[in-house]
Structures are given as C-alpha cells and as structure tokens.
Write a protein that binds this DNA or RNA. Structure first.
Lengths: 187, 187
DNA sequence: CTTCTTATTTATCATTTGTAAAATTTTTTC
DNA sequence: GAAAAAATTTTACAAATGATAAATAAGAAG
C-alpha cells in the first residue's frame, strides 16, 4: 500500500500539509523475526506498513501475549510513547519480511505544534485506533472464544495462513490447545 | 472536580484557548439512573464529570455488558461519535446523581479546525483514553478474573461501595456468581 | 528424497467458569 | 420496626478451558 493512500486513511490533508508530512517519511525494510519496537523504552520512531505483517506483544507471567496484528496500511507505534513520551509496554516484531515507511516521532511532534491540519490528522489517527481497541475489548468481554475466532476468520481470513496459531491463540486470549479444539469442532 | 482542573488533565492550554473552550461549556445535573448517551445515534454532546459515577455498556446476546466506569474528572463521550461522527455502540447511564459539565460536540469540532492548541488538546485527550483502554485489553487477555478483581480493588477501592456487583462482574468479564466466589475466596 | 526440526493436533485429567435455582442478606418503603 | 423488594451469596451440576504429554503433520535443510 502506497504512503499517500495510507495517510489518507485517517483524514484528508491539504497538499501542503501532506507534503510536509511526507518530507519526514522514508522507506525501510526488515527481515522476518526482527523486533522493531521494544518495551521499556520511549520509542523514537513510528512506522506505516507498506507490506508484511507484524505483531505487538507484552511479557506476562504465563509467557508473552499477542494483542495486536498489523498488516498492510496499518500504523505501527508504541501507543504509550506516541501519546505521552513514556516508555511503552509492548514489543513489536515482524512476522514476515516487511517493507515499512518510517518517521521520527520527534518530527511528527513538531509538526503537531505548527500545522493544525496535521494535528487533526494525528487526532483522527489515534481515534481510529481507539475504536478498534474498544471494539476488541468489548468482544473479549462478551463473546466466547469460538465467536472471537469466527469473527477473526471473517474479518481477516488471510491472517490464518500467514501467522502461527500460537500467536492467534494468544491474541484470542486462549491456549493453543483450546484453539485446536475450536478448529476441530468447526470442521 | 472543577472544570479547569479537568481540562488541564490532558494538556495545558494557553489562557486564550482555554477560555474559548470554557465559553462553550455549561453545567447540568442528572438524577441516578438517567441515560445520557444512547447507542445507535450520533451523539451531539460530550460531558466531563464534576461529581458522580456513570457506566458505559453495550447490548449483547447474554444481556448488557459494562465496559467502562466514569468518575470525577473523567470524560464521557461516545467514542465512535467523537471520532467519526457515526452512531456509537454504547449506552452511558448515571449510577448516582451526577453533576456534569457539558459541551456540544459540534462546537468542539469547530474549535479543532480553528485553534491548534485545542486540536492538540483533543489529540491528547483521546490518547490518554486510548492508553487506558489498551491496558484493560491486555489485562483481559492475560490476567485471571481474580487478578483483575484485585487490580480493580487497589486502583479504585471506592468503586465497590458505589456500584452494584452485577456491573462489576460484567466489567471484569465474568458472571456475578464467579465474582461472589472470588470474593468469598479472598475473605 | 530423507532426515531433522518445528508446528499442530489429540488425549487425558484437573481446574475454572457458567447456568439455574434456592437461600440469605441488605435495602427500601410504609 | 415490619413487610416487601432488591441485591448478593451459596449450592449443585454441566460445560468450557487449562496443563501436560504423546502423536501426527508440516516445513526446512542437506
């Protein structure tokens, strides 16, 4: 997905503002298995995914927990760093070779203070992420694991071919054994 | 909590911008049990809580599900309406008599397009809500119901005296029976 | 193609959580 | 303060999920 289309996903920008944004964006490529954002530090870079797939996860007592998958067109940020400049709690790693657009958080931060269109673009960006997160929270609260699996299947069917089932299970909040049972039941 | 302190929670505003915001804010009082935001419509008003407590919930197959409590100093909005102008999926009702500050979403929307400080204030506001939601999502995914209950107890101990246990149970993603079992175990 | 490694499924049993109904406690109303 | 209503807890049983280990399948390396 090209950078123009990605930027337009959140909020249409006047040409001048869009150019100002793009002036700070460059391309970068990472192999599979690369950690691009680490928990415990204030991340200085944010990314947009041109191609490839990534996952965000946190360390828990019972192993790591995947709570987000990013695909073509998605924004990759440490939310806490982006919002508050504080160290974040998530690791983000590539699950495939990834072609990314990158931007320094500091550059975006200064654009926010000087360009009102970009400030509103940033507001919309986080708003859209917020809606998705809230919808997932609600589905975790009042859907069964099987319903959540079926939802994921219909929302992003390709994901299952590209991501290991242990990550899918973790994302759904269940063990891999439970996921296998659900898959067996549906067949 | 006074309106100045509430507005300052998100981002410090220059006096002129703060005054512009406050010019659109008025006070309103609702009795207990009043629904102030309804699912399925684009909500035109947002609120800040001076005193009282509210809950946000969605209708599910197995009854309604509480996914947020708002207390003194919190913002009350239909996220989807605030972000996209689309109809939201949550109801919000007062659980106590509430003293609220209210503002028309349309007024805020126009301030966003004319005052860059307010645009950034709105960006920070949603960012802080985002962090909270993400933290809750992660805790739903990798903590047990008992851990989530203990977390809630230590984070907002007063809540338990003010809110019915059926809402707490729903918020934790468990049944009221399970919550009773957890409470019995801890005692 | 065969071997080695990794990923996934299956099986078994223990634990947790849900459902439904009854019992108890607390709150409200008169 | 007694009666009624509402909220909470308890009980008994069913269903779902977790933990562990073994079996199978799929993929990578030579």
């Amino acid at each position: 997905m090209e950078i123009d289309a990605i930027l337009d996903r959140f909020h249409l920008l006047p040409p001048h503002s869009k150019a100002a944004l793009k002036a700070h964006i460059s391309e970068v490529q990472y192999p599979k298995g690369q950690t691009i954002i680490r928990a415990g530090r204030a991340e200085k870079t944010l990314y947009f995914i041109q191609s490839g797939i990534v996952r965000a996860y946190s360390d828990g007592e019972r192993g790591d927990v995947t709570f987000w998958f990013g695909q073509e067109g998605d924004v990759v940020i440490s939310m806490k760093s982006y919002v508050s400049g504080q160290p974040g709690y998530e690791h983000i790693e590539t699950l495939e070779p990834c072609q990314l657009y990158q931007m320094k958080a500091q550059d975006l931060e200064s654009l926010f203070t000087t360009d009102i269109h970009i400030a509103n673009w940033g507001r919309k960006l986080i708003g859209q992420e917020m809606i998705k997160t809230e919808e997932r929270l609600i589905s975790m609260q009042f859907k069964t694991a099987q319903e959540r699996y079926l939802d994921l299947m219909s929302a992003t069917p390709g994901l299952l071919q590209r991501v290991q089932l242990c990550h899918i299970a973790s994302f759904l909040g269940i063990t891999q054994v439970s996921l296998s049972r659900i898959r067996a039941e549906i067949r």
